[in-house]
């Protein structure tokens, strides 16, 4: 196991470096200029060029790239052009809100998806199976902004059950439990939107996988031994069916930080996705690159984790 882990760890730095360079070139290739947003109307040429040189945007692209890489190597992600704040503190300020949203959604989706998938696999063609299958097919095809707006208009608008936007009520005066309850209340709709979309996928995977396992010979043996159907389903079949589900959930781990941008915009959730969206529109290069970097690192780490789990579970992977 040791050499395998070492080999995988050594692959990470070049991947990250490649991603950094690629991201840098891509964002600078896009037309537009951060200054149009910063200066706006009525600036004159000298003002533009003064700001351009202050931000270092007048240097050749290669030089900007080298400077940027040198900064990153020392842990400095630069300053936001628009907010004039260190990128790292902007990002760290947004991470908790996003993790709360995506973490809740993923946990809920995994629980509900696996549970429903197992239940409907136990009775293929039954009422529950047909119902959940139909709903899951629809959910899998629905875009997140549409689902989000639908929930918003119906549950928050017509019924008034939930707040419409944001993470805390603007008029909330006290902290403590009131704050926690308020945040949880705000969390329901955006988290449900994200979770419903993931449930569809996890449900279908679990269902398929459990159904395949249920026809294996060791299940027949278990039945012959006289084990209860419940025990067979949950202890023997489900456990052996979870590998593909773990893979998918592991993949989602990597997108935890960036996967909610659209939902964050719909619900005005103050997370990382929205920071990215705004940064792209205003061409705030350092922020865009910083978020790309954090997300890339997350992805690489999630992949590594998944691979290591595989190697742990299946010795053939280690020596391949």
């Amino acid at each position: 196991m040791g050499p395998y882990v070492l080999r995988r760890l050594l692959q990470i730095p070049p991947v990250i470096l490649g991603l950094l360079v690629l991201n840098f070139v891509l964002i600078h290739l896009a037309p537009g200029d951060p200054l149009y947003f910063l200066v706006g109307e009525g600036g004159d040429e000298s003002y533009y060029s003064a700001i351009r040189s202050r931000l270092g945007l007048d240097r050749p692209l290669a030089e900007q790239l080298v400077r940027y890489l040198a900064g990153v190597a020392t842990g400095d992600l630069g300053r936001s052009i628009r907010h004039n704040e260190p990128v790292i503190s902007l990002i760290l300020g947004r991470v908790p809100a996003t993790l709360l949203l995506t973490g809740t959604a993923l946990a809920a989706a995994t629980g509900v998806g696996v549970w429903l998938g197992t239940l409907s696999a136990a009775r293929p063609g039954g009422l529950l199976d047909r119902l959940t299958n139909g709903v899951a097919s629809v959910l899998a095809a629905v875009p997140s902004f549409w689902l989000g707006q639908l929930l918003l208009v119906s549950l928050a608008g017509w019924l008034g059950l939930f707040p419409v936007q944001g993470m805390v009520s603007a008029r909330l005066a006290s902290g403590g439990w009131a704050l926690i309850i308020d945040v949880a209340h705000h969390l329901v709709l955006p988290a449900s939107t994200l979770a419903l979309l993931q449930i569809a996928l996890i449900f279908r995977l679990t269902r398929q996988s459990v159904r395949e396992t249920l026809v294996e010979e060791f299940i027949r043996t278990a039945r012959a031994k006289g084990l209860s159907p419940r025990l067979i389903l949950y202890r023997h079949a489900l456990r052996n069916s979870l590998l593909p589900v773990v893979t998918v959930v592991g993949g989602h781990l990597g997108t935890l930080l960036a996967g909610a941008a659209v939902v964050e915009v719909v619900f005005a959730w103050p997370g990382l996705g929205r920071l990215l969206y705004d940064a792209i529109l205003t061409r705030d290069y350092p922020v865009v690159l910083g978020i790309f970097l954090v997300v890339s690192v997350m992805m690489v780490l999630a992949n590594l984790l998944t691979d290591l789990t595989y190697a742990y579970l299946d010795p053939r992977v280690r020596y391949a």
């Binding site: 707006q149 918003l152 419409v164 936007q165 944001g166 719909v266």
Partner: peptide, 20 residues
């Protein structure tokens, strides 16, 4: 308090619901 609500339809709902 100034709040940025990027989605216009969400902003209108927030006003209707008294959040803004």
């Amino acid at each position: 308090i100034f709040k940025v609500i990027p989605q216009p339809s969400t902003a209108v709902l927030a006003l209707e619901q008294g959040e803004a």
